[in-house]
Every structure is written in C-alpha cells, then in structure tokens.
Amino acid sequence: MDWQLVLDSIGPVALGGLTGTIPLTLASFSLGLVIAIGMALARISGIAWLSGLARAYISIIRGTPMLVQLFVIFYGMPQIGITLDPWPSAIIALSLNVGGYAAEIIRAAILSIPRGQWEAAAMIGMSRGQALGRIVLPQAARVSVPPLSNTFISLVKDTSLASVILVTELLRVAQRIAAPSGEFLTIYLVAAAVYWVICLVLAAGQDRLERKLDRYAV
C-alpha cells in the first residue's frame, strides 16, 4: 500500500464527502421525509383514490432500481424537454426513493399508536388534524426513529450512485484521483473508509437520539 498516496488522497476524498455526499444526503432526506409523511397520510386517509395513488407510488419506487430511476430523470427527462443538472437530478431521484421507503415506516408507526390516543385527543376537543400533529405524529416519530435512522444511513451509501451522473461527491472525487494514478485499490479503500467513518458517526448519533427519546418510553 502506498501510504503517501493514502495521505494525499484522504483530504480531497473527505472533502468530497463534506461538500458532496453530506449535503446530498441531508437535502434528499429532508425532502424525502416530507414526501413520505404525505404518502403515509394519503395511505391512511381512507380516501380510495388518494391511498391508491400513494400505494402505486410506493410500489413503483420500491420495485425499481434506484440507478434506473436516476437514469430516467437525468437521461430520460431531457427527451420530453425537462433538462436538469446533475445535482437537482440526484436530489430528486434520492428523495423520491427515500419517500417510498420512509412512507411505509411512517405509516406503520402511525398505525402503531393506540386508538385510545386518538380518542383522548378527541375528548379534549382536538380536531383530527390537531390530534395527528400534536398527539399521534410526535409519538409515531419516536417509534420510527430506529427504522428511519437505518434509511438515513442507507441513503449516505446510496448517494454514491450520483457519481454516475457526474455529481461531485465522495466517490466521484475518488474516481478522478484513481483514474490517472492507476492506484484503484488504494484510492477506493480510502473512499470506503471515509464512508465507513461517516456511517459510524451517524450510528453513534442514532444511539444517542434513541436514548434521549427513551425518557418517555411507554
């Protein structure tokens, strides 16, 4: 192993993580969560066409490879006149993807809150919307922290797919260093190590968050 190369490349690769992977993850996760909450609510709305639509969306997202989704958006859409830069394309594809997976997590979490909570909320005079926002969703959020953290960590790794549409994130930076030097093994191991460190930090954060939320565990 060429340790000098490791030292030389780790800076740029980590910077690629900092300026590419992490912002891409954060943006896609936040947007994806909004989509997911909407889809979860649509699923449990009791309105047939709305929940059918959400069900179809979730099924398509979960039943097709993310790389194909990315290609449809980046390479396919320009044919119907919608041309997007790599970054927006990647954010759209990744957040649609998070939306599909997290929707089922959030739906299950909402359904896991006992009926008595809805009734107590109604008893104190809350509308269904208030009961959802103030009573049910906060508890559902607690329930969905562990599975959503897993989605988040998967997303960090999935952002590497954006490198194929030339988004300058961690893996793309590594590719650019590796190609001229020919030191693929070293450089890609460095890239893997940086991903690993990011995920370790996130897993530790997940742990702390869960323990903090546990103070009112039922």
Binding site: A120, Q139, R142, Y216
Partner: peptide, 13 residues
Amino acid sequence: SAMVFQQHHLFPH
C-alpha cells in the same frame, strides 16, 4: 363533558 378513561390514555410524550 370530559371523560376519564379506564386505561387513562394519558399522552406518553
């Protein structure tokens, strides 16, 4: 009216 439930149904959060 206001109700006191058998299983109290307090808001745990």
